[in-house]
Structures are given as C-alpha cells and as structure tokens.
C-alpha cells in the first residue's frame, strides 16, 4: 500500500489495470448503441466508383457478387452485401453470387432469403447463388472458363443449366463485373486470377484491417473501386439512400475512436512526463 502511495501520477497512469481500459471501451460502444443516432459520413471517390458501377447494372444486366467472408468479419462486410443487393435489384439488375469462404454460403443464404422476401425478387430469375467451392484461386480460374466447371449445381442442388437466369451466362464475359466482398486472401485472388487472367473488372469490399493494402491496385487500375470497412459501407448506404447497419455503426465508431485517441494522448503525456522526471533525477 505504501509503495502504491509513493508512485508518481504518471507511473500510476502507465500501469493502470487493463480491465479499466476494457470497461471504458465497452461503454464507448454500448452507449451509442442504446441511444441510436445518425452521423453523416464524408464520401470518398473509391466507394463512389463502386456505387456508380452498381447503379449502372440495370435491365437484366448481371453483376457477380462474391461473398468471401466469414462471421468474424460480417460486421463490416454484411452491410455492404445488403446495400449492393438492394441497389441492384431496385434498378432491375440481376445478381450472380458465389462464395469462396467456407462460412460464406449460409450467411449469403440468410441475407438472400431476408432481402429477396422484402424486395419481391425471384430465385433463378433475378438471382442465382452458385454456392461454395474450396481453393479460391483454382475456383476463380475455373469460373473464368465456365461457371459450370466449378459449379455444375447451385447451392440448393439445382442443375445450373435449368435456371433461367443462367441461360447464355457462361463466364466473366457475361457479367458486367465482379464485386468481391472479401476478408482474406480471396481479395488478392480476385485481382490475380480474375482481373489479370481474364480481364474482368473487379471492385473489392474489404475490412478496415485490409483496406490500406489495396490502394496500389486502385492506383494501377486493377481495381475499379474499393469499399473500405464499416465507414465504406456507411458511405455506400448514404449514396444509395439506405439506412442500414453501416450507418448504425458510425456513432459507436466515433465514440470508440475518440476513446482510443484519448488513450493515446494520455499514455504519451504520462510517458514523456516519466521520461522528463527520470532525466531530472
């Protein structure tokens, strides 16, 4: 106890129990979730490019939407899927879906069942879900030859040739482009094996963690757009006039970022105060 009393303020600050940090962080997220609010976001050109592309998918044109993420990243990527599906279907476009993540299919099925019911679109006519195959690189290459090579049947076991939407739809030449919502290496595979091999236009929706890694591809034109993390999802929803989970996520992003910035400032103030005291000694 005596030792604790003798500690300087900066030492006490630098050795604070981690559970206090957890508590403050928890509150920074819980409070904005309870008191729901809406904070507009600044829009970026890379998200606008994806939005404008999707907006041009009309009158039966097809976009390939790759659901290449799993539950550990669905918080960021699921809102993107929802916004894109709503926008494309609203404009009369059609969606071909595939999944290269083993947990993607059931999540895709959940979101398709929910939104298709709300928007009155028909399976096999307005959308087709090809399902899952392991080994993303090889699967993308096979899709480039013909979607039927890796996916002779769809996720539900139907013969792909029996689905009206798939009539005359064979490979990447028959879709307007690919929007891959990816949380892992599948994003790189779409660039390497989809774009470089077959020349199909590719845009990515990725997690915040991954986002900064894809700017070189954006600059070189290998990607036509990028939706980075939950902020990107919120931007997309704002452009499409949809109030979804992306927009809902921004208030707690704001508070938690404020908390982390506060932590960084405080810990550095304490760090430099201790360093100054040590120098004086």
């Amino acid at each position: 106890m005596a030792e604790r009393k003798s500690k300087a303020w900066y030492d006490r600050m630098l050795s604070v129990d981690r559970r206090w940090i957890y508590l403050i962080m928890g509150l920074a997220v819980v409070v904005p979730v309870i008191w729901e609010m809406y904070i507009p976001v600044t829009e970026s050109s890379e998200v606008r490019d994806v939005y404008e592309f999707s907006d041009d998918v009309t009158d039966g044109e097809i976009v390939l939407l790759a659901i290449d993420y799993d539950p550990s990243t669905m918080a960021e990527l699921h809102p993107m899927t929802e916004a894109i599906l709503r926008q494309v279907w609203r404009n009369g476009g059609r969606v071909l879906l595939s999944s290269l993540s083993q947990f993607g299919p059931a999540m895709a099925d959940e979101i398709l069942t929910r939104i298709a019911g709300e928007m009155d679109v028909e399976y096999g006519v307005d959308y087709v879900f090809l399902g899952y195959k392991p080994y993303p690189a090889i699967t993308i290459l096979a899709m480039g030859a013909d979607f039927r090579v890796p996916f002779p049947t769809d996720y539900y076991g139907n013969n792909v040739d029996e689905l009206p939407m798939m009539e005359g739809v064979h490979n990447f030449d028959d879709v307007e482009g690919v929007i891959a919502l990816a949380s892992g290496t599948a994003a790189d595979y779409w660039i390497t094996y989809g774009n470089a091999k077959y020349g199909v236009p590719v845009a990515l929706g990725v997690t915040g963690v991954m986002a900064s890694d894809y700017y070189p591809y954006l600059q070189s034109g290998q990607l036509f757009g990028l939706i980075p993390g939950i902020k990107g999802a919120a931007e997309y929803e704002q452009m499409a006039g949809i109030r979804g989970e992306g927009a809902r996520g921004i208030p707690y992003q704001t508070t938690s970022h404020a908390v982390i910035l506060f932590f960084i400032v405080m810990t550095n103030v304490a760090f430099f105060a201790r360093r100054a005291a040590q120098r004086r000694r």
């Binding site: 979730v33 918080a75 960021e76 939950i230 996520g249 992003q253 938690s256 970022h257």
Partner: peptide
C-alpha cells in the same frame, strides 16, 4: 481500429 470496433458494435 475501425474493423475491430465494428465487430464489437455488431
């Protein structure tokens, strides 16, 4: 940070 917080928020 944005990515990790999104998961918790969800």
């Amino acid at each position: 940070v944005m990515g990790r917080v999104a998961l918790l928020g969800q």
